[in-house]
Amino acid sequence: MSKTLLLIVGSPKLKRSNSYSIAEYLKNELIQQGWLVEIHFSHQAFKNETKMNEIIEKTKQVDLIGIIFPLYVDGIPGPLIQTLEMLTQHKTKRTTQKIFSIVNSGFPEPHQSQLAVDMIEQFTQEYQAHFIGGLTIGGGGIIGGMPIEQIKHRSRRLIKALDLTIQSLNQTQTVSREAKQLLSKSVFSKLLYNTFANKGWKMQAKKYGSPNLYRTPDK
Protein backbone atom coordinates (compact mmCIF):
# COMPACT_ATOMS: atom_id res chain seq x y z
CA MET A 1 0.00 0.00 0.00
CA SER A 2 1.38 3.43 -0.91
CA LYS A 3 1.37 6.06 1.79
CA THR A 4 -0.94 8.69 0.43
CA LEU A 5 -3.18 10.88 2.53
CA LEU A 6 -5.70 13.57 1.68
CA LEU A 7 -6.74 15.84 4.51
CA ILE A 8 -9.99 17.71 3.93
CA VAL A 9 -10.26 20.68 6.27
CA GLY A 10 -13.84 21.80 6.83
CA SER A 11 -13.31 25.19 8.48
CA PRO A 12 -14.24 28.50 6.85
CA LYS A 13 -11.17 30.09 8.42
CA LEU A 14 -8.95 28.03 6.12
CA LYS A 15 -5.29 28.34 7.12
CA ARG A 16 -6.16 30.41 10.19
CA SER A 17 -8.29 27.63 11.64
CA ASN A 18 -7.66 25.18 14.46
CA SER A 19 -8.59 22.41 12.04
CA TYR A 20 -5.79 23.49 9.70
CA SER A 21 -3.34 23.64 12.62
CA ILE A 22 -4.16 19.99 13.33
CA ALA A 23 -4.03 19.01 9.66
CA GLU A 24 -0.72 20.74 9.10
CA TYR A 25 0.80 19.06 12.15
CA LEU A 26 -0.29 15.65 10.88
CA LYS A 27 1.01 16.46 7.41
CA ASN A 28 4.43 17.69 8.55
CA GLU A 29 4.99 14.68 10.80
CA LEU A 30 3.75 12.08 8.30
CA ILE A 31 5.80 13.53 5.46
CA GLN A 32 8.87 12.77 7.55
CA GLN A 33 7.66 9.17 7.65
CA GLY A 34 7.56 8.97 3.87
CA TRP A 35 3.92 9.88 3.29
CA LEU A 36 2.57 12.00 0.47
CA VAL A 37 0.06 14.36 2.06
CA GLU A 38 -2.14 17.09 0.64
CA ILE A 39 -4.51 19.44 2.44
CA HIS A 40 -7.62 20.79 0.74
CA PHE A 41 -10.38 23.03 2.04
CA SER A 42 -14.05 22.13 1.53
CA HIS A 43 -15.10 25.76 1.87
CA GLN A 44 -13.05 26.64 -1.20
CA ALA A 45 -15.03 24.05 -3.12
CA PHE A 46 -18.37 25.52 -2.09
CA LYS A 47 -20.11 26.62 -5.29
CA ASN A 48 -16.76 26.25 -7.07
CA GLU A 49 -17.02 23.43 -9.58
CA THR A 50 -13.32 23.48 -10.47
CA LYS A 51 -12.18 23.14 -6.89
CA MET A 52 -14.85 20.55 -6.11
CA ASN A 53 -13.74 18.44 -9.09
CA GLU A 54 -10.16 18.75 -7.88
CA ILE A 55 -11.11 17.37 -4.47
CA ILE A 56 -13.19 14.59 -6.03
CA GLU A 57 -10.22 13.54 -8.18
CA LYS A 58 -7.79 13.72 -5.27
CA THR A 59 -9.95 11.45 -3.11
CA LYS A 60 -9.77 8.77 -5.80
CA GLN A 61 -5.97 8.79 -5.73
CA VAL A 62 -5.23 8.26 -2.03
CA ASP A 63 -5.28 5.37 0.43
CA LEU A 64 -6.28 7.43 3.42
CA ILE A 65 -8.63 10.37 3.84
CA GLY A 66 -8.81 12.52 6.97
CA ILE A 67 -11.74 14.86 7.50
CA ILE A 68 -10.93 17.56 10.03
CA PHE A 69 -13.43 20.24 10.99
CA PRO A 70 -14.99 22.34 13.74
CA LEU A 71 -18.33 21.40 15.22
CA TYR A 72 -21.03 23.59 13.68
CA VAL A 73 -24.49 23.68 15.27
CA ASP A 74 -23.91 20.20 16.67
CA GLY A 75 -22.88 18.76 13.32
CA ILE A 76 -20.86 19.13 10.16
CA PRO A 77 -20.48 22.58 8.58
CA GLY A 78 -22.79 23.06 5.59
CA PRO A 79 -20.09 23.47 2.90
CA LEU A 80 -18.30 20.32 4.09
CA ILE A 81 -21.59 18.41 3.86
CA GLN A 82 -21.82 19.59 0.26
CA THR A 83 -18.33 18.21 -0.45
CA LEU A 84 -19.27 14.89 1.13
CA GLU A 85 -22.53 14.78 -0.87
CA MET A 86 -20.59 15.33 -4.08
CA LEU A 87 -18.05 12.67 -3.15
CA THR A 88 -20.77 10.07 -2.61
CA GLN A 89 -22.41 11.01 -5.90
CA HIS A 90 -19.14 10.35 -7.73
CA LYS A 91 -18.26 7.12 -5.99
CA THR A 92 -19.00 4.03 -7.99
CA LYS A 93 -17.62 1.05 -6.14
CA ARG A 94 -16.32 -0.21 -2.84
CA THR A 95 -12.62 0.37 -2.27
CA THR A 96 -10.00 -0.34 0.34
CA GLN A 97 -9.72 3.34 1.15
CA LYS A 98 -9.75 4.30 4.81
CA ILE A 99 -11.30 7.39 6.35
CA PHE A 100 -10.86 9.00 9.75
CA SER A 101 -12.16 12.16 11.30
CA ILE A 102 -11.03 14.75 13.82
CA VAL A 103 -13.66 17.16 15.13
CA ASN A 104 -12.70 20.05 17.34
CA SER A 105 -15.12 22.12 19.32
CA GLY A 106 -15.13 25.21 21.46
CA PHE A 107 -17.11 23.32 24.09
CA PRO A 108 -14.85 21.73 26.69
CA GLU A 109 -16.69 18.40 26.61
CA PRO A 110 -15.35 16.29 23.74
CA HIS A 111 -18.43 14.04 23.65
CA GLN A 112 -20.46 16.94 22.24
CA SER A 113 -18.70 16.29 18.91
CA GLN A 114 -19.33 12.54 18.89
CA LEU A 115 -22.47 12.91 16.77
CA ALA A 116 -20.44 14.70 14.09
CA VAL A 117 -17.90 11.85 14.09
CA ASP A 118 -20.74 9.35 13.76
CA MET A 119 -22.05 11.30 10.78
CA ILE A 120 -18.64 10.98 9.11
CA GLU A 121 -18.82 7.26 9.76
CA GLN A 122 -22.22 7.25 8.04
CA PHE A 123 -20.68 9.15 5.11
CA THR A 124 -17.90 6.56 4.94
CA GLN A 125 -20.45 3.77 4.62
CA GLU A 126 -22.22 5.57 1.78
CA TYR A 127 -18.85 6.30 0.20
CA GLN A 128 -18.15 2.55 0.42
CA ALA A 129 -14.86 2.92 2.25
CA HIS A 130 -13.63 1.85 5.71
CA PHE A 131 -14.04 4.08 8.71
CA ILE A 132 -11.03 3.69 11.00
CA GLY A 133 -12.19 6.01 13.76
CA GLY A 134 -12.55 9.56 14.90
CA LEU A 135 -11.20 11.88 17.51
CA THR A 136 -13.11 14.61 19.30
CA ILE A 137 -11.25 17.53 20.81
CA GLY A 138 -12.95 19.48 23.57
CA GLY A 139 -11.63 22.90 24.43
CA GLY A 140 -10.13 23.25 20.97
CA GLY A 141 -10.12 27.00 21.35
CA ILE A 142 -6.74 26.80 23.07
CA ILE A 143 -5.16 26.07 19.70
CA GLY A 144 -6.04 29.60 18.64
CA GLY A 145 -5.29 28.95 14.99
CA MET A 146 -1.59 28.63 15.82
CA PRO A 147 0.80 25.97 14.54
CA ILE A 148 0.68 23.06 16.94
CA GLU A 149 4.45 23.30 17.52
CA GLN A 150 3.93 26.73 19.03
CA ILE A 151 1.21 25.74 21.49
CA LYS A 152 2.68 22.52 22.83
CA HIS A 153 2.95 24.06 26.28
CA ARG A 154 -0.81 24.68 26.42
CA SER A 155 -1.88 21.06 26.42
CA ARG A 156 0.48 18.12 26.68
CA ARG A 157 -2.53 15.84 26.46
CA LEU A 158 -3.53 17.21 23.05
CA ILE A 159 0.00 16.91 21.69
CA LYS A 160 0.43 13.37 22.96
CA ALA A 161 -2.91 12.38 21.44
CA LEU A 162 -1.93 13.85 18.08
CA ASP A 163 1.49 12.17 18.20
CA LEU A 164 -0.13 8.81 19.00
CA THR A 165 -2.54 9.36 16.12
CA ILE A 166 0.32 10.06 13.75
CA GLN A 167 2.10 6.94 14.94
CA SER A 168 -0.95 4.71 14.52
CA LEU A 169 -1.82 6.16 11.11
CA ASN A 170 1.73 5.61 9.95
CA GLN A 171 2.20 2.10 11.31
CA THR A 172 -1.22 0.50 11.04
CA GLN A 173 -3.51 2.99 9.30
CA THR A 174 -5.75 3.08 12.36
CA VAL A 175 -6.76 5.72 14.87
CA SER A 176 -5.05 5.21 18.20
CA ARG A 177 -7.31 4.06 21.03
CA GLU A 178 -4.95 5.63 23.50
CA ALA A 179 -5.34 8.95 21.69
CA LYS A 180 -9.11 8.64 22.00
CA GLN A 181 -8.73 7.93 25.69
CA LEU A 182 -6.50 10.95 26.19
CA LEU A 183 -9.03 13.14 24.43
CA SER A 184 -12.01 11.81 26.36
CA LYS A 185 -11.63 14.84 28.62
CA SER A 186 -11.16 18.46 27.72
CA VAL A 187 -7.60 19.24 26.70
CA PHE A 188 -7.63 22.09 29.17
CA SER A 189 -9.07 22.62 32.65
CA LYS A 190 -12.82 23.00 32.13
CA LEU A 191 -13.21 25.63 34.83
CA LEU A 192 -10.31 27.72 33.57
CA TYR A 193 -11.37 27.23 29.97
CA ASN A 194 -14.91 28.48 30.59
CA THR A 195 -13.65 31.39 32.69
CA PHE A 196 -11.13 32.50 30.10
CA ALA A 197 -13.59 31.96 27.26
CA ASN A 198 -16.23 34.18 28.84
CA LYS A 199 -13.69 36.90 29.65
CA GLY A 200 -12.02 36.48 26.31
CA TRP A 201 -15.13 37.45 24.35
CA LYS A 202 -15.39 40.72 26.27
CA MET A 203 -11.74 41.47 25.68
CA GLN A 204 -12.06 40.76 21.97
CA ALA A 205 -15.10 43.03 21.79
CA LYS A 206 -13.03 45.97 23.05
CA LYS A 207 -11.31 46.34 19.70
CA TYR A 208 -14.75 46.97 18.19
CA GLY A 209 -15.67 49.61 20.71
CA SER A 210 -17.20 47.22 23.26
CA PRO A 211 -20.68 46.96 21.74
CA ASN A 212 -23.52 45.65 23.88
CA LEU A 213 -22.84 41.93 23.59
CA TYR A 214 -26.34 41.11 24.84
CA ARG A 215 -28.05 43.05 22.05
CA THR A 216 -31.33 41.56 20.75
CA PRO A 217 -31.85 43.11 17.30
CA ASP A 218 -34.59 40.74 16.17
CA LYS A 219 -37.06 41.09 19.04
Binding site: Y72, V73, G75, I76, P77, G78, P79, I81, Q82, L84, E85, L115, D118, M119, I120, Q122, F123, E126
Partner: peptide, 18 residues
Protein backbone atom coordinates in the same frame (compact mmCIF):
# COMPACT_ATOMS: atom_id res chain seq x y z
CA UNK B 1 -31.22 13.45 5.36
CA UNK B 2 -27.52 13.66 4.49
CA UNK B 3 -25.33 11.27 6.52
CA UNK B 4 -27.83 11.47 9.37
CA UNK B 5 -28.18 15.23 9.38
CA UNK B 6 -29.66 18.01 7.30
CA UNK B 7 -28.73 18.33 3.64
CA UNK B 8 -26.02 20.84 2.80
CA UNK B 9 -28.52 23.34 1.39
CA UNK B 10 -30.45 23.56 4.64
CA UNK B 11 -27.41 23.21 6.91
CA UNK B 12 -25.73 26.23 5.33
CA UNK B 13 -28.81 28.23 6.35
CA UNK B 14 -28.91 26.72 9.85
CA UNK B 15 -25.23 27.57 10.34
CA UNK B 16 -26.27 31.22 10.05
CA UNK B 17 -28.41 30.99 13.20
CA UNK B 18 -25.36 31.35 15.42
Amino acid sequence: ISFGGYSSQLKCAIDRLI
